[in-house]
Amino acid sequence: MQVTRYSEAKPYEAPEHYDMRCLRLQGKEATATDTIWIGLSHLLPGGRTSLKAAAVEKIYIVVAGEVTVETVDAAVTLGVLDSCRLAPGEARALVNRTNAPASILLAMPT
């Protein structure tokens, strides 16, 4: 068993993430997970990412506040414990349009 304590989770830099702080909870350099990795991102009010696609699918779960997920075709605001899946190659942007911080989990293949 490999445990990552939130208090000991290591931050990582994600390109084109603005007013966000990201922590690696599982996978990559955090643990020996070989199929997925899990990150937790904290978005300040106005925090956002660029509209960008990844070659692999992504799953997001909001754990605090509200986060708007924008794609080329739609935009949806997710609240606490709402989730969404983005297909491989589907461009997305995350935006915190509120005046309160928000937090979102990301799960994706390694």
Rank of each mutant, 00 (worst) to 15 (best):
C22F: 11
S83L: 10
A102P: 06
V69C: 08
R92L: 13
C22Q: 02
L40V: 10
P45K: 03
R97E: 15
Y12G: 09
D82R: 03
S7T: 14
M108Q: 07
T35Q: 06
V72H: 06
A100K: 03
T98A: 09
G46L: 03
R92S: 10
Y12K: 02
P15A: 15
E90T: 05
E57C: 08
E13I: 10
S7Y: 04
N99D: 15
S50K: 03
V67K: 00
G39A: 08
D34L: 12
A75Q: 13
G89P: 07
A91C: 07
V62R: 00
E70C: 12
Q26K: 05
L40M: 14
R24M: 12
L44K: 05
G27M: 06
M20D: 07
Y60K: 01
V72Q: 09
T4S: 11
I36R: 01
L23H: 07
A30D: 03
G46E: 02
V3I: 14
G47F: 01
G47Q: 03
R21I: 13
T71V: 08
M20K: 06
A100C: 07
V95P: 00
G46V: 12
A30M: 13
Y12F: 11
V72M: 11
L23V: 15
A91Q: 04
Y12S: 11
E29D: 14
V63P: 01
A107M: 11
G39C: 02
G89A: 07
C22D: 15
K58F: 03
G27W: 00
A100P: 01
K10R: 10
K10Y: 02
L105R: 02
S83F: 08
E90P: 09
S7W: 06
I59K: 01
L25G: 14
L86N: 04
E8G: 14
R5L: 12
L40A: 10
G65V: 05
I36E: 10
A74K: 03
I61P: 00
A14H: 05
Y6I: 13
A54V: 05
C84W: 04
D73M: 06
E57H: 12
V62T: 01
Y60V: 00
D19W: 05
A55R: 07
T31Q: 08
A74F: 10
E57W: 12
A55V: 09
V62N: 00
V72S: 07
L94W: 03
V63I: 10
A91V: 02
R48E: 15
S50G: 12
D73K: 05
H17T: 09
K52W: 06
R24E: 13
T33S: 15
L86K: 03
N96I: 11
E57Y: 09
